[in-house]
């Protein structure tokens, strides 16, 4: 009974945290972009505008919920729900911290992870693969030209970059020898020479290349600048969600931000040692707080890179996007796998 309760509480906490990450990320993005452009950004609602996203959310809730007259009703309602669900799904297997009994609150220590599966990484890829449906169905069901164009673009883009995304993680699987995210994190514990952490980024020369490839593909997978072709506002109005308004638009918006947080969290888990860091874990009662802090800090620094890219780089042209994905990222990830295999065989012999 208590176990079921713990699982339910875990699900609730992770779900709430993922959703609360969205307003924070919106505020963070607007502030960082503003400061990079010598502006102040939102300042009025709350101190330094921290409550601005909540004000936006309330505004969106009270907007008219418009259904385009020629739209395909069932699919039109289904699409944002699909987008949101698949975005949150990835968090179900990510380990957020070491085992803990929450300062003696529980008798048995529990892992800070909703569930540890043997095929954890494949679950994440399934969620990513299903994420395409929300966008495609939204574009198709709106029965309008710009959304359809955005949907067609995003299908091709996400299908192309998913390949390199998957291949870039293969070298990590080879180094860790497991698909379980918990074991992948634990394979990155400890330090080299007492100060360099044994993260996969540092464990092999190919680790860093794989990390870069993963992150670039992740940016493309979440349709963020400079790969935000599916919603290129200068060409397609708003892309696949042009016809959406009110809460249904808000769900697409939230799904995009949850996806960004998910990609950063997965990159942290796979390449940057997850919750491992100086002072994390161990036998102390507060070690898990430090571990959780490390995890959050790593995720936020990756999210900063996201915003940095958006503020710096112009959008790619469609043919450039496809050429980059197929002619550079795809071969590069294959070469990374080969190099990792050579590295491991050298270490073994």
């Amino acid at each position: 009974m208590i176990e079921l309760l713990i699982i339910a509480v875990k699900c609730l906490v992770v779900f709430t945290a993922a959703l609360l990450g969205v307003p924070f990320m919106v505020w963070f993005e607007r502030k960082v972009v503003a400061h990079m452009q010598m502006r102040l950004g939102p300042m009025y609602v709350g101190p330094h505008g921290v409550l601005q996203p909540f004000a936006d959310a309330i505004k969106l809730m009270f907007k008219e919920d418009f259904l385009p007259p020629q739209a395909n009703k069932v699919v039109y309602y289904l699409a944002p729900v699909l987008g949101m669900t698949t975005a949150v799904l990835a968090f179900s297997v990510i380990p957020f911290g070491p085992q803990t009994n929450l300062f003696g609150l529980l008798k048995e220590p529990i892992p800070l992870q909703v569930t540890d599966l043997n095929i954890g990484l494949l679950i994440i890829f399934s969620a990513t693969a299903m994420g395409v449906y929300g966008i495609v169905l939204a574009g198709w069901s709106s029965n309008s030209k710009y959304p359809l164009l955005g949907a067609l673009r995003s299908t091709a883009q996400m299908a192309s970059y998913e390949l390199s995304l998957g291949l870039s993680t293969v070298s990590i699987l080879m180094l860790a020898g497991s698909l379980s995210l918990n074991e992948i994190v634990n394979a990155q514990a400890g330090l080299y020479w007492g100060f360099i952490p044994r993260w996969f980024v540092f464990q092999s020369p190919t680790g860093f290349a794989a990390f870069l490839l993963y992150f670039i593909c992740g940016v493309a997978e979440t349709n963020r600048a400079p790969f935000d072709l599916p919603e290129a506002e200068t060409e397609l109005v708003a892309g696949f969600h042009t016809e959406y308004s009110s809460m249904k638009f808000a769900m697409f918006f939230m799904a995009e931000y949850v996806n960004m947080i998910a990609v950063s969290a997965i990159a942290t888990t796979l390449f940057l040692g997850g919750w491992h860091g100086w002072g994390a874990g161990g036998d102390t009662s507060y070690g898990w707080v430090i571990g959780l802090g490390w995890f959050v800090a790593k995720v936020i620094s990756l999210l900063f890179v996201y915003v940095w890219l958006r503020a710096t780089l112009p959008r790619l042209r469609y043919d450039q996007l496809m050429a980059f994905g197929w002619k550079f990222l795809f071969p590069a990830s294959l070469v990374t796998i080969l190099a990792t295999a050579l590295w491991i065989s050298r270490q073994v012999s």
């Binding site: 890829f125 399934s126 299903m130 395409v132 449906y133 495609v136 198709w140 299908t155 299908a159 998913e162």
Partner: peptide, 9 residues
């Protein structure tokens, strides 16, 4: 995730 997306496409 791949084959049916291709169909839909």
């Amino acid at each position: 995730g791949a084959i049916m997306v291709l169909f839909l496409f």
